[in-house]
Design a protein around this nucleic acid. Structure first.
Lengths: 245, 245
DNA sequence: AGTTGGGATTTTGCATACCAAAACCTGTAT
DNA sequence: ATACAGGTTTTGGTATGCAAAATCCCAACT
């Protein structure tokens, strides 16, 4: 494992490596790119898993997925790799991919981590939110209330996700935002089936939170979010008899 | 994107899917498995990146890596995919993989997230550490002190990692442990070049932390870890003129 | 009945070959 | 210098082949 001296093949004089070429670091990709196929496959599979078309525990056969999606095995494999690192499927060596089976214990652990990250996120956001940001938060809050009034379960979940996501962006901490995004998506997968019971309370807590953010009261924002996520966790444990399926 | 009815190809009568087959859920893999090649490649590349054989910004050509490692392009591609999701390389569409270039801002964000996660980890660990666990912590602590006395920089870093890793295992929260593992590894990558200055202080703080854990004083453990990680963060900002390279 | 054992069949994991499109490099003409 | 044109490299994806491993099925045996 300990590699010896021999460096990478230095290739001919027309080599293209320019390790220290100073590139315009800030300008990212502006032009529209036609989305790599593996990304499309990843999105498709994630969607199929989240909406339970692919059931937990199901064996995902590469060839079948490839045929179903009309692509070759390679992009499917790459998508499965990524789905594994993000916890959606389990890749058992020499056996292939299986849709991850959420356990109660794991759900609780995810909710615990989520609580910590979101709580910190709320504190940071409260510390640096502009007036425009607060206005946007109220917009998202209203969208959620409308979904609540219309009993639009799916809209409620996505409105909730949007609000939390925007809050994490406010922190200006991209690493934190990415991590929360990962954890939240999985929490939603576990939690969606029982999201209905909690609703009024949750959105009332959101309102309090936004007020604290608007007032730049970091301690209060942190405390409210801690309560908010902790109650969500309790709601998960006190859920009705929907333990199975 | 909204898929229609047509399910996965149901395949012939010899199909193998048994979604609800009751399997002995608890027994995991016991036998030794010969490590998938993509995993070996992943480890090799991660090591090459961490020890700076592959410099930040360097263009990683699949064919070169494949030749260098003596494998085909396929496992290399899969390894690169995973390296991307974990932040070691950037995969620019149609251009390939480049070793990620750490920025000061990103390092700070990582240290911030790490502080939050480790702090929570310390609290949980203090709440549920057995006497045997505490004894093991002291072992690891002593290993670190020896490395410190011997001025063994590499040993110091790995001893530090071992101690923190064991603490996260104690929490019993696998999700938290995994996340901390990810973040810590990257922090170490950024931080290693300047790890020396801080040393005595850090290991003194470790001792205090272990005492708090042994006494099951969760608040104290949390507080100490918060200080510990925050000081590490400051040490990063107040680092000497090693800002470049 | 219940278990054991031996193929037959699938599926993965990896290698190889091939190709279009995109990006890059370079040299030349402006 | 700038812009253009052409050649080269590299990616991203397809197709194919194949050994090893895992699974399944069915028949023989306690």
């Amino acid at each position: 494992m300990t590699q010896t001296a021999s460096p990478l093949p230095e290739r001919g004089p027309t080599g293209r490596r320019t390790a220290k070429g100073s590139l315009a670091a800030k300008s990212a990709q502006r032009v529209e790119r036609p989305a790599p196929l593996r990304q499309v496959v990843y999105d498709a599979l994630a969607e199929l898993i989240i909406n339970r078309t692919l059931e937990p525990g199901q064996h995902l056969v590469e060839a079948d997925l490839a045929e179903y999606l009309g692509v070759s095995r390679q992009p499917v494999r790459e998508a499965l790799q990524r789905l594994q690192t993000e916890g959606w499927v389990d890749l058992r060596p020499a056996q292939g991919a299986f849709v991850h089976m959420p356990t109660d214990e794991e759900a609780d652990q995810l909710l615990g981590v989520r609580a910590v990250l979101e709580t910190h996120s709320a504190r940071l956001a409260a510390g640096c939110a502009s007036e425009a940001d607060v206005a946007r938060l109220w917009e998202l809050q209203n969208a959620g209330l409308e979904a609540l009034a219309a009993d639009d379960s799916e809209g409620l979940v996505s409105a909730n996700a949007d609000l939390h996501a925007f809050l994490t962006e406010l922190t200006g901490n991209a690493v934190l935002a990415e991590l929360i995004g990962l954890v939240d998506r999985r929490v939603r997968w576990y939690y969606t089936p029982i999201a209905r019971p909690r609703g009024h309370d949750a959105w009332h807590e959101h309102a309090e939170l936004i007020e604290a953010v608007a007032a730049h009261d970091v301690d209060k924002a942190e405390k409210i979010m801690a309560h908010h996520t902790e109650r969500t966790r309790q709601a998960f444990h006190e859920r009705p008899e929907a333990a199975r399926e």
